[in-house]
Structures are given as C-alpha cells and as structure tokens.
C-alpha cells in the first residue's frame, strides 16, 4: 500500500531496461564489440531506433491494456482482443494507399480515426446498460480483426506496389524501424501516458462501476472519453509504426497486478517499464532466434499471450 517504496524500485527497473536496450542493440546477425559501438552505423541507424521503438510500442500497449481492463471492467480486454489494433491497421493501410505517408501524421491520423470508429462501434454493440457484456465484447473484437484482415488483403492484392506483406499488418514487425518512426510515436506515447497517469485514481474508482464511481465524485463520462481517446491514439500510432502486435496489453498488466495488487496508481507505472521490457525481449528473440531469418514479433507475443488469455478465460468462467 505504501507507494513511496515504488520510486526506487521503478528507477532500478528503468536502469535494467536501459541496460537491456543497449545489450539488445549490440547483438544480432553482426555482433558489435564495445569498442566499435560509437562508429557503427548498424548500431546507430538500424538497431538503436528499432530497440527504442520496441520499448515505446510495448509500453504503450501495456498502458492501453491496463486502461481498457479498468474502463471496461473486464480482465480479458486489450487493444488486440478488442479489435482496436486491427481497426487502426486498416486505417493505416488505407492511408498508405492514398499516399498519406508523405505527411508526418498522415498514417497515424488515419489509423486514429479508424481506431476511434472501431472503439465507438464496439462500445455501442457490446454495452448493455452501463456494463459491457463479455461474450459480445470479445466476439465483436474478433470479428473486427477478421474483417480488417480481409479488407487489408484485398487492398494489398490491388496495390501490390505500395504495400508491405500481410504478415507485417497481422503479426507486426519492427524490422523497418527508423528514427523517423520513433520521432512520430514518442510524443504520442508521452502524451497518452501522462494522461492515463493523471487519471489513474479515477480508473480505480471506475473498477467499482460507473454509478458508484459517479457517486464518489468521478465525472465518469468525461474521464472515460478522455481515457479511451488517449489510449486509442497510442494504439493507432503504435500500429502505424509496426503493425498489429497482439497480447502485450493483456499479459503485462496481469503479470504486474500479481506483484502490485489492483491499484492503478501502481499498475500503470510498472506496466510502462514491464511492457517495454517484454516487447524488447520478444523483438530481440524474433531477430536472433533463427538468424539470419526473422520471426514475426507478433507470433512470439501470441505464443506467450494466447495461453495466458485462455487461462484467464478459464479462471473467469463463472462470471459469464
């Protein structure tokens, strides 16, 4: 319950994360020695932006998962399961075909609009009174994922010259990461994170139900709107930079809660660090496990995440 102790622990974990980033950027098809690091273009222009991007995306997805789980009062939700990631990826794909990627926020902006639209539809379809129906929520999300995947494959066949492989959009890849991507994503993640941190106490109260939260002084509708916008924005820009990477937002908050308990004022900060660490680890494995071939990073997160999802589904069976 004492959150003062968290500060040195979080600082320590951040140091671990930074060390892991450095180490990860050093290894790969070509191992770079400590002495050569400063002059290595592979290190500075290929590996480092990729490593930084993986941490940004991992943190963003973890925060969004934790937020969705509290707002929807449902332990099974994350951007991927809800179909928000897929909706956003469809928006990003359309933006690329329309040639919007020459504008700085073009792809992300379009992904954001598609993500918000998906969020709105899911909210409308799955809410009964002020509670979300779990089965409907999950089915709607799954359905959106299929739909977005199908439309993207159509678009790709029609625009083969402009699009990367379908694997990029459905399994995610950090392979094309550049400092440019980092520059676009970093401010979005920073802004979104600050927003969620600012409202993290309200998130706790939302867990007690909308009506209770309101009777305890939370401006429920306003807070929900702000939080869903901030998180969908993070998801949309993350997806625009590296495609759909699933389950990070599901696994991380649950793992964190085992250690911190349910208080979002602790869950969110720990999820930031843990999410970054998890995706960094997965991406490092994705590019080193079968070198020189590269695994889709989303396949790795799914291998860890899908069983976790099934375990949670089993544990929550009584509630449906």
């Amino acid at each position: 319950m004492n959150r003062k102790k968290d500060i040195p622990i979080l600082a320590g974990l951040t140091l671990v994360l930074l060390a892991a980033m450095l180490l990860s950027a050093k290894i790969g098809v070509v191992d770079i020695g400590w002495a050569e690091l400063r002059g290595s273009a592979v290190f500075w222009q290929l590996r480092l932006p990729r490593v930084v991007l993986s941490v940004l995306v991992g943190s963003a997805l973890a925060i969004c998962g934790a937020t969705y789980q509290s707002v929807f009062r449902n332990p099974l939700t994350d951007p991927y399961v809800l179909g928000i990631s897929s909706g956003a990826s469809l928006g990003a794909a359309i933006a690329i075909i329309l040639g919007l990627h020459s504008y700085l926020w073009g792809v992300g902006g379009m992904a954001l609009m598609a993500g918000l639209l998906t969020m709105l539809l899911i909210y409308k379809i799955a809410s009964i009174g002020n509670r979300m129906h779990t089965t409907t929520l999950l089915l709607t999300g799954t359905c959106f994922t299929f739909l977005a995947g199908a439309v993207i494959s159509f678009l790709m066949v029609l625009n083969q010259d402009k699009m990367e492989s379908i694997v990029f959009w459905t399994m995610g890849s950090l392979g094309s990461a550049s400092w440019n991507d980092v520059g676009i994503l970093a401010p979005v993640v920073l802004l979104g994170t600050l927003c969620v941190l600012f409202y993290s106490k309200d998130l706790n109260l939302l867990l007690a139900g909308s009506e209770t939260a309101k009777s305890l002084g939370v401006e429920v509708e306003k807070v929900k709107r702000i939080l869903l916008f901030a998180t969908t924005m993070m998801v949309a820009f993350a997806v625009s930079s590296c495609g759909v990477i699933g389950f990070v937002g599901l696994i991380v908050p649950h793992a964190v809660r085992l250690l911190t308990g349910p208080d979002n004022r602790r869950v969110i900060p720990y999820s930031i660090v843990a999410g970054g660490l998890l995706l960094l680890l997965c991406d490092t494995l994705a590019r080193t496990l079968m070198q020189p071939a590269e695994l889709p990073v989303g396949a790795l997160t799914a291998i860890i995440g899908a069983p976790v999802f099934i375990i949670l589904l089993y544990k929550n069976k009584k509630q449906f």
Partner: peptide, 22 residues
Amino acid sequence: HTDMEFSAFEIVLMGRNPYQKR
C-alpha cells in the same frame, strides 16, 4: 461488486475521493 481485487480498507478509502486532489 464482488469481482474487485481491492481490500476492504482500500474500498472504504475510496470514500475519501471527493476530498482529495487528483
């Protein structure tokens, strides 16, 4: 709501929310 993981103490503490800054 019985599905919350908060302790009774934390639940009662939520009652102080209207008097706390964010």
